[in-house]
Write a protein that binds this DNA or RNA. Structure first.
Length: 429
DNA sequence: GCGGATGATTAGGA
DNA sequence: TCCTAATCATCCGC
């Protein structure tokens, strides 16, 4: 546009009626054949400009060439320049620099925090670690889920960068194309460098909005991934059968005081391949559910009583305190527990026979008791509500208030205590 | 799909 | 801090 005044000055003498750039004689009415002829020419040119887009490319090129060579072209060009300059000046104010979009800033910050944008160094794993810590940790599964999370995050990151690169490339290509086009057009219509610059800015803004959509989608993907990761940690997985059996054996063998010590919990956790917290949860749930519905658990209790009796028999027949692979060993010392010779279970066996059971008799008599027990179980089909304490099984550990009888402060318990009727301790036999 | 079983979470108490 | 009790969310057999 800078050259326009020069161009306009060099072409004074031609112009349009009513326009400040027009010579005086052209602004004075319609007199003279010269004036009519020029008007006719201008009208023709304008008509051609108006209809040029309707024509074929070849035809348009030919007409374009004709227009460029037309004797009126420089004058019209000047007029257009002036009009354009005024128009551009009027819209310039409206296109002030916009402040950075807060939403875009938020998206950028989030992508940076999640490790999607910026350097790839544990943004995601940090998030994963935080999530894992928040959920209390789940031992062995932790690292697997962790790496899974990182892998998926890395995938998102890769897609994001690929797409971003594509957008940038497309933006550059399009900008170059438009600039070339504008430069080409500047031969036939007035286009200033600033205008080109402004057009480039417009293009960049358009592509920025597309980029923002990309960032938004990426953020959403990360959010979904995170929520899935956290949800997955919350998901419940049933313990395997062996773990449940180990826990149940401990529970029923310590029924008078089913509060494992910290050491016992650790031991159980190790044996069951679960966390100490899960052991605590399990015992918490078990105690409540057992207490709520003792009848329902009688069968289970009897089953474990029988199993323990069998174990005891086996141990006895081998003349030693055998350590079953599936049962914790040692007798009552801190950090271990004894299920094979549990006093609670012996009480159960005792109740079944209706005789007093001598712990020291574990041996030849045990097998017969086990047989009796099996028979009773098969006969009764488990616990019936009509059974009294002397029958099949008595939940002797629970007192009238619903609490475990004489249960000491749980945290201080390292070995179970017995109910009043008990004749055996966990360490007996 | 339904309902019971079960692991996890949460609030409140000691 | 650990417990109970209630509740949620999911699993799993029917």
């Amino acid at each position: 546009m800078d050259e326009q005044p020069r161009l306009m000055h060099s072409h004074t003498g031609v112009g349009m009626a009513g326009h400040p750039g027009l010579p005086q004689h052209m602004q004075e009415g319609t007199g003279g054949t010269d004036g009519d002829g020029r008007k006719q020419d201008i009208g023709d040119i304008l008509q051609q400009i108006m209809t040029i887009t309707d024509q074929s490319l070849d035809e348009a090129q030919a007409r374009k060439h004709a227009l460029n060579c037309h004797r009126m072209k420089p004058a019209l060009f000047n007029v257009l320049c002036e009009i354009k300059e005024k128009t551009v000046l009027s819209i310039r104010g409206a296109q002030e620099e916009e402040p950075p979009d807060p939403q875009l800033m938020r998206l950028d910050n989030m992508l940076l925090a999640e490790g999607v944008s910026g350097p790839e160094k544990g943004g995601g794993s940090a998030a994963a670690a935080a999530a894992a810590a928040a959920s209390g940790g789940a031992g062995a599964d932790n690292s697997a889920e962790h790496s899974d999370y990182r892998a998926k995050l890395s995938q998102i990151r890769q897609i994001y960068h690929t797409e971003l690169e594509k957008y940038e490339q497309a933006c550059n290509e399009f900008t170059t194309h438009v600039m070339n086009l504008l430069r080409e057009q500047s031969r036939t219509r007035p286009i200033s460098p600033k205008e080109i610059e402004r057009m480039v800015n417009i293009i960049h803004r358009k592509f920025s909005s597309i980029q923002m959509q990309l960032k938004q989608s990426t953020c959403e993907a990360v959010m979904i991934l995170r929520s899935r990761f956290l949800d997955a940690r919350r998901k419940r997985r049933n313990f395997n059968k062996q773990a449940t059996e180990i826990l149940n054996e401990y529970f029923y063998s310590h029924l008078s005081n089913p509060y494992p010590s910290e050491e016992a919990k650790e031991e159980l956790a190790k044996k069951c391949a679960i966390t100490v917290a899960q052991v605590s949860n399990w015992f918490g749930n078990k105690r409540i559910r057992y207490k709520k519905n003792i009848g329902k658990f009688q069968e289970e209790a009897n089953m474990y009583a029988a199993r323990t009796a069998v174990n005891a028999a086996n141990a006895s027949s081998h003349g030693s305190q055998a350590n079953s692979p599936s049962t914790p060993n040692s007798a009552g010392s801190a950090g271990s527990f004894n299920m094979s010779n549990s006093g609670d279970l012996f009480m159960s066996v005792q109740s079944l026979n209706g005789d007093s059971y001598q712990g020291a008799q574990v041996g030849a008599n045990v097998q017969s008791q086990v047989d009796t027990l099996r028979h009773v179980i098969s006969q009764t089909g488990g616990y019936s509500e009509g059974l009294t304490a002397n029958q099949m099984y008595s939940p002797q550990g629970i007192n009238a208030n619903g609490g475990w009888q004489d249960a000491p402060t749980p945290s201080s318990v390292t070995s179970p205590t017995e109910g009043p009727g008990s004749v055996h301790s966990d360490t007996s036999n």
